[in-house]
């Protein structure tokens, strides 16, 4: 009897040890770095320096702008593809695999691939040149065309990371009971009514996890921005990297990391709060 009660705890013990060593230990170290000087005195100076930095507001702005542009776009694209795949047309499995392929591409690689398209000697410029639209290369990636740089980052992320949302949504769709859909058909629901009143509500848990994962990743987005935006478009994760590796102040770097964590937790909380499924609400 006693072992039965203890067994679950034994079983999760390895996970807990793993989390303690590889998640909580570094995390507490990061908190320490952000609030303590090298001599171990408490200070808010690192946060003050971060907030007063000339690039901070811009980094914050672009992090949010990119997130609120990319995440909804990905969600819509992924939902459309998932619904398409769910019609089980011939070859839909193959189509799913092809759509999921970019999952295997590292974000830096994705950024570099897009860079090779948009750079002054890139594919886009050579196509435009050969078609006679331009006489000399157009500088898409430059200080003069912030819009293009922003767009190329959105494009890279959209191409690379939509697949993860897609996979989650396809799994979610497949879990929806056929009986419910057939019942809707019997009651004479039109396709969009079926989508709106049956599929989407039942898909909510999947949408929720997809949103949480994607938003957190979008907030942490860094390699793609680094490859395409250089320093033109700063983001919070990039600033954390720059402060550690280039400006060599790990305290301020930790402050950025903590800020990102707080924002991520906040966003997750918001999703959990506002996308609650019916059973949770009843409970």
């Amino acid at each position: 009897m006693k072992t039965d009660r203890l067994l679950p705890y034994f079983l999760i013990l390895p996970t807990i040890i793993y989390l303690l060593i590889f998640v909580f230990a570094p995390l507490s170290k990061a908190v320490g770095l952000a609030f303590l000087t090298d001599e171990g005195r408490f200070t808010l100076g690192y946060f003050e320096r971060m907030f007063s930095d000339g690039r901070f507001l811009e980094a914050l702005k672009y992090t949010f702008l990119l997130t609120i542009t990319i995440v909804p776009l990905q969600l819509i694209t992924a939902l459309l593809i998932a619904l398409l795949i769910n019609t089980r047309f011939k070859g839909s499995q193959l189509f799913l695999y092809i759509c999921a392929l970019p999952l295997g591409i590292a974000d830096l690689a994705a950024g570099l691939i897009l860079l090779s398209i948009f750079t002054q000697h890139g594919h886009l410029n050579s196509i435009l040149y050969h078609l006679g639209f331009i006489e000399k290369p157009f500088y898409f990636i430059s200080y003069q065309h912030m819009g293009f740089v922003f767009l190329s980052i959105v494009l890279a992320e959209h191409w690379r990371a939509t697949a993860i949302v897609l996979v989650i949504l396809v799994a979610g769709l497949q879990m929806i009971s056929k009986d419910l859909l057939e019942a809707a058909d019997v009651l004479g629901a039109k396709p969009w009514q079926k989508l709106w009143h049956v599929i989407l509500p039942l898909l909510k848990p999947s949408l929720q996890s997809a949103l949480i994962i994607r938003t957190i990743f979008a907030l942490q987005m860094f390699a793609v921005v680094l490859a395409l935006g250089g320093e033109i478009i700063p983001v919070l994760a990039g600033e954390a990297y720059f402060w550690y590796y280039i400006y060599r102040n790990n305290h301020i770097s930790a402050a950025y990391a903590l800020l990102l964590m707080v924002i991520s937790i906040l966003m997750t909380w918001i999703y959990l709060r506002f996308l609650r499924t019916r059973s949770e609400m009843r409970a």
Binding site: G54, Y143, I246, Y247, R248, N249, N250
Partner: peptide, 27 residues
């Protein structure tokens, strides 16, 4: 450990004044 901040100040100054065209005196 703060030598990188020295570089950052000059870099940021350049980007703010020359690229983002913010007022010289203020920056």
């Amino acid at each position: 450990t703060r030598s990188g901040e020295f570089s950052k100040i000059y870099r940021d100054t350049f980007v703010e004044i020359v690229v983002k065209r913010r007022p010289i005196r203020e920056v």
